[in-house]
Design a protein around this nucleic acid. Sequence first.
DNA 1: TTAAATTTCCAGAAAATACTGGAAATTGAG
DNA 2: CTCAATTTCCAGTATTTTCTGGAAATTTAA
Lengths: 187, 187
Amino acid sequence: MNLTPLAERFVLHFGEMGSRWGVNRTVGQIYALLYISGKPLCADEIGETLAFSRSNVGIGIKELQAWRLVKLVHLPGDRRDFFEPPKDVWDIFRVLMEERRRREIEPTLSMLREALLERPDSEADQIAQDRMREMHGLIELTTGWLDEVQRLSPETVIRLMQLGAKVQKVLEFADKLKFGARDGGEA
Amino acid sequence: MNLTPLAERFVLHFGEMGSRWGVNRTVGQIYALLYISGKPLCADEIGETLAFSRSNVGIGIKELQAWRLVKLVHLPGDRRDFFEPPKDVWDIFRVLMEERRRREIEPTLSMLREALLERPDSEADQIAQDRMREMHGLIELTTGWLDEVQRLSPETVIRLMQLGAKVQKVLEFADKLKFGARDGGEA
DNA sequence: TTAAATTTCCAGAAAATACTGGAAATTGAG
DNA sequence: CTCAATTTCCAGTATTTTCTGGAAATTTAA
């Protein structure tokens, strides 16, 4: 399979950005190719198109599966494994957020939780623990909020985003009518 | 300067997580050290505490400055450069979001904008461009929302987060009263 | 069960990144 | 201006990561 210049630009860009997103060039390019192809591809097609060795494609696909960014599908009458990303771009976004959180946030949250259980036995520890407590609070608040948002329908989330800063007015209004909006305790 | 066991755990953790956050071990450890120290440190202190060469510390600090995660300060009567992170953890969070967006999102947004201006001259290009349009729309919506949120006061943002999924009820309520909340057009 | 197709694993090569010590440049006090 | 303190730059070394080809394992159709 040969790439059009348009497709090639997209693929090369994802390859270069890969390192900033925590994957290597191969993985970035493979994902980009699957994303714009609009149909499932098999490892050989991918390797041929991007000029990667067969094993390299295999490793890259495994990594993308670990990220839940591509899934295995089978075409009738073909025993090879084909791969495609989730159809819906919002689905991709959600998965990406979840995985990044799992890899980039959760380990730190655990570490902070444990560290905060200990009794500080010096002034330096006291200060360090105060700082950790601040960080812990911030992470708890933001990830807790993410949990809540994930329970909303995509449509509601989209509406919320389109609302933008106007949400403040809605909040003020809610306050004025004692809507109970102040109570964020049980969240 | 010597680290307490508690501080050391924190520093080592940040070193290990660094690679997932797009910085190397040195940079992660330096940041962690500055964060929990609660006072500005100079390059020599950092290098001595973490057992890095002086140049390595220099490079690491430069990188943290590029991220706007530490700033240079001077202590009276000392001509050495000292460094400290922003005091407020919400400030750190905001800077982190801005920088990640600038490095991880903006380049892709530019690429997509350009690619979408071109006329597709094959069915494959047609499909590819449709996919790019979806991705572009998602990014525009989310970054636009981030822009709006940044204009709110931290207190409002915190309240919004504490509200969590209850925001849906507020929205419904606003709708019912024809508050004008449906209009997200000018955002 | 066999054999062809396909995927997974692995060891070594190639490439990229991180790190060091020292040399050069810059800064600021006197 | 001079000189000592400090920072920045640089070339070479070490480490880590990526990539390859081939061998082993797995799968499935017949």
